[in-house]
């Protein structure tokens, strides 16, 4: 028998389905902040209308090669970001995780780390992945620290990958295997 357990709830946040109607407005709003866009993506920072965002969300509902969630504060129910797993079409070996906390008032307070721990548990315990990967720009030091805290290992850096503000920046690769996650999870349980 399986113990009843709320896999998608952490200490500060829970992961909930993305609601096209509600979240498209939030996603558009978050992208007005160029700092957010530039932390998240190597594509040029730009704006998305909520109608275009809603259409994109609806077109990708029930997709089989990625899964995404809204990050909801347990305290007040606010949707403060989104997180998802992708690039696993055909095989459940490796997946890339992407995470964005859209509302800057929630930056640096542990919400992202909590969401990351939840999605790792989901990736390993429900979807049976062997490892989870991510890429992060070298200037996003807050995110790098958070990923290290969640158990991600540094696996290399692509030199001078990104061109922004008149200089080039490295793209860092990080990953966590099932074994590393199990070790980290057991330590957390025993603490």
């Amino acid at each position: 028998m399986i113990e009843k357990q709320d896999i998608l709830t952490g200490e500060k946040v829970r992961l909930v389905p993305i609601d096209a109607e509600r979240d498209s407005i939030l996603f558009s709003l978050w992208h007005r902040n160029s700092e957010y866009s530039r932390l998240l993506d190597s594509d040029p920072a730009r704006q998305f209308s909520s109608i275009a965002t809603k259409k994109w969300i609806e077109e990708n509902e029930l997709a089989h090669d990625f899964v995404s969630f809204g990050i909801q504060s347990i305290e007040d129910g606010t949707i403060l970001g989104d997180i998802g797993l992708g690039d696993f079409s055909g095989q459940f070996t490796n997946t890339f995780v992407g995470l964005g906390i859209g509302d800057p008032q929630y930056w640096g307070k542990g919400y992202g780390s909590d969401a990351m721990r939840i999605i790792l548990r989901y990736a390993f315990e429900i979807l049976n992945f062997h490892r989870v990967s991510l890429t992060v720009f070298e200037y996003n030091t807050r995110a790098i620290r958070s990923y290290e805290k969640c158990g991600f290992q540094h696996e290399g850096r692509l030199r001078e990958f990104l061109s922004r503000e008149g200089r080039r920046w490295d793209l860092l690769f990080m990953g966590i295997t099932r074994y590393e996650w199990q070790d980290a999870f057991q330590k957390m349980e025993n603490a």
Partner: peptide
């Protein structure tokens, strides 16, 4: 090209996990 990153055991093929290498040249 230089090998710049290694995704450990990122692929499964022929009943075995394999690393994925990322090479780059500037």
């Amino acid at each position: 090209y230089l090998r710049e990153a290694i995704f450990r055991e990122a692929e499964f093929f022929n009943n075995k996990y394999w690393d994925r290498y990322v090479y780059g040249i500037l």
